[in-house]
Design a binder for these strands. Structure first.
Lengths: 184, 184
DNA sequence: GCTAAAGTGGAGGCTTACCTCCGATAGAAG
DNA sequence: CTTCTATCGGAGGTAAGCCTCCACTTTAGC
């Protein structure tokens, strides 16, 4: 991939090193502090000057996109992986994958609702990936018909972003919610 | 009530006016910006100097408690109001009431997971209010037995805090989740 | 090696928030 | 009306984040 989030990866070796270090540091920082993580701290963690951060990512959003758009691709492709399962199982499996995507990323959750230009495209990609799975489950009678793709993704991302005592509880709560989606 | 959140309401007329104005302004600000709302903006909105804010509420937490503990009481007492309904209906009704409490309050949601000393008591009060309703619904066979009070309150508060296109969507999603809680 | 071009990094100016302190003010009591 | 005192409010010191700018450093290509 030549670009990530519309930001070109630089050519010179040292510049590429810094670019990658910044994305890695930003991933951690966004996960820990949400969208408002300090850019100066990100630069510090990456072992890079603040000027370098700004040259590569003129705005916070650019950095944010670079961090998440790559992983988003993988998530969308996962829809193909589960396409062979039974209709309902495919829905459940992909949603669990989606949880894995959102779980460690407070920032994603904060952003998923906003209408920030660039995230809109990302959301559309996810919706496009999940929509067919849901449609198939609904046609086969496995999933209730009165919910939309949008409903489900918001349901699951809201659930996921909450704080839980442990992983087992998150899993339990997710199971309850998925049972609610199942047709009776 | 003489105290709110452990903070004594002052005696002099002007002081009481300011105290109340601060709580009202803080309620708005916390709803809008979450726990990190600027204290100086709260003082400004209340038409009061920043010094007055600090005299009444030495810490952010004191202010936060004063804002929410009063409303919390009302929420807990609502458990009695619904106690006369059918077991399942009582659970659903109280949870909807709970949604009303959390929905406009990002700050509450942020705080509900943390173990901040003073919020712990608040959480226990809510749990105490809801627990009997859930237990009754489980005994009557209306609610599944593999979920706890804690599970449900986190499930619902997570759902509620998410962003939605409109109220109808929030309602739809909540319905799905509640259906998941119902015994088959 | 040498050099031009790409890339670096942090000092510094700006803004915003936190919190303290104390001279000025306004309510309560007589 | 006066006096006493609780209360006010914002100036100002401190800290942290944002972002720009440019003298310096490093790389790639010869």
């Amino acid at each position: 991939m030549q670009t990530q989030g519309g930001v070109r990866r630089p050519q010179r070796a040292d510049a590429r090193r810094n670019f990658d270090a910044l994305i890695a540091a930003a991933r951690d920082a966004f996960a820990e502090h949400g969208t408002t993580a300090s850019l100066e701290e990100i630069a510090r963690r990456a072992g890079v000057g603040i000027g370098t951060l700004y040259r590569n990512f003129p705005t916070r959003q650019d950095l944010f996109d670079a961090v998440y758009l790559g992983e988003l691709d993988a998530l969308c492709r996962a829809a193909d992986d589960v396409a062979g399962l039974e209709p309902w199982d495919a829905v459940a499996a992909w949603l669990r994958r989606f949880v894995g995507y959102v779980a460690t990323k407070r920032a994603i959750y904060e952003e998923i609702n906003r209408d920030s230009e660039m995230v809109r495209g990302a959301r559309e990609a996810m919706y496009a990936a999940f929509e067919p799975l849901l449609a198939r489950a609904q046609e086969s009678g496995a999933a209730r018909r009165d919910v939309s793709t949008d409903d489900l993704l918001r349901l699951v991302s809201g659930l996921t972003a909450g704080g839980y005592v442990d992983e087992a509880q998150r899993e339990r709560v997710l199971t309850v919610a998925l049972d609610g989606v199942r047709a009776r």
